[in-house]
């Protein structure tokens, strides 16, 4: 009886997600404004990115503030392979994902032994080092970056000049895949191991959970998916440099939707992205392009406000209401 209700709950999540995807897919039929479409693409992309971050930071409890590294790697690998070796972006995307996952494993080997805040600090430092390396790496374009010439509309080359819609549908696909991967993992041995590791590593070990392996698995999957998002972004904006794909603000933008929406939950990143990204994009255009510093202040304040007033995120509002209803 008990496993039936659980299976029902999971099916309900799946149906809900399918409905959301179907609805989202129809939105461009009504919204023709390019600026708004642009915001929708970014919102979906950050929903997928934050969902990816959530696997490591939310479920497994290893707070990374350096996911800009994997985002940037996905972007750079795709751009370099395309412009220097004529490799189609689809392969670039996959290669970027695999390279990022391998690097996450290599970096995880020493850093996953660090406890608590030291891990978060290490991720910031490592991402910053990578940023500086790319800033000075001439072959990879250094500070000038890489320009991806867009000449034609082509799905094979994933470039489109006339319409933003293909990007929109890919971003939707990416967000849906990241959600689906999470949905599937949540009810697997990995999902349970991660949450156990987050809540209490000692107890987890006593129950046969291999803590280190759990973290490595979460790190690799999270990095792979994040790099896919980075590869997409490179094609979407068709010009990248270290500042625009590997700077610290991406680490914040990737983690914030999950933190805001509900860390370590299935729906938190989506909810957080839908609320946060349009707001930041609107403020950005309101203040003007030079408002980088202001962005950071806004993100920082958001983190503080959320963690002080609503540690379980916006999703907590819903579940609290539901609980009250259940009591009545």
């Amino acid at each position: 009886m008990h496993d039936v209700t659980h299976a029902k709950q999971r099916r309900r999540d799946l149906i809900l997600a399918a409905v959301f995807v179907a609805l989202a897919a129809c939105v461009p039929l009504f919204v023709k404004d390019v600026y708004v479409q642009n915001i929708m693409v970014l919102t979906l992309m950050y929903a997928g990115l934050s969902q990816s971050w959530n696997i490591l930071g939310g479920y497994c409890g290893q707070i990374s503030l350096g996911h800009a590294l994997y985002f940037g790697l996905g972007a750079y690998v795709t751009a370099i392979l395309l412009t220097k070796f004529d490799v189609l972006p689809w392969f670039g995307m996959l290669t970027g994902g695999i390279i990022s996952a391998l690097i996450a494993l290599a970096l995880g080997y020493p850093t996953f032994r660090l406890g608590g805040h030291y891990f978060a600090i290490a991720t910031i430092v490592i991402a910053e080092i990578a940023y500086l390396l790319f800033l000075n790496w001439d072959w990879a374009g250094a500070a000038l970056g890489i320009d991806i010439m867009v000449r034609e509309d082509s799905w094979a080359k994933f470039q489109f000049t006339r319409s933003k819609l293909p990007y929109f549908y890919f971003a939707l696909f990416f967000a849906a895949v990241a959600w689906l991967v999470t949905w599937w993992l949540e009810n697997s041995k990995w999902g349970y191991w991660w949450r156990a590791v987050k809540d209490n590593p000692d107890a987890a070990e006593s129950l046969g959970v291999v803590v280190f392996k759990s973290k490595m698995g979460a790190g690799a999957i999270s990095a792979f998916l994040t790099a896919i998002g980075g590869a997409f972004y490179a094609m979407f904006v068709s010009y990248i440099d270290p500042e625009s794909v590997m700077s610290f603000q991406f680490s914040l933008l990737i983690s914030l939707p999950a933190v805001l929406g509900g860390i370590g939950t299935l729906w938190g990143p989506v909810l957080g992205a839908v609320v946060l990204i349009p707001v930041t994009e609107l403020t950005r255009s309101f203040i003007g392009g030079s408002g980088r510093g202001v962005d950071l202040i806004v993100y920082g304040s958001l983190i503080v406000i959320v963690s002080l007033t609503r540690p379980d995120g916006l999703l907590g509002l819903f579940s609290r209401k539901r609980k009250k209803e259940a009591v009545q």
Binding site: Y192, N200, D202
Partner: peptide, 29 residues
């Protein structure tokens, strides 16, 4: 006591059950 505080009671126990069976339905049962 070292409960997994953010997990439900049954999810706490499932973590233990997964040592013997990685099939989720069997572990839950």
């Amino acid at each position: 006591v070292k409960s997994f505080e953010t997990m439900t009671v049954i999810d706490n126990v499932i973590v233990g059950a997964l040592v013997r069976s990685t099939e989720m339905r069997a572990a839950r049962r």
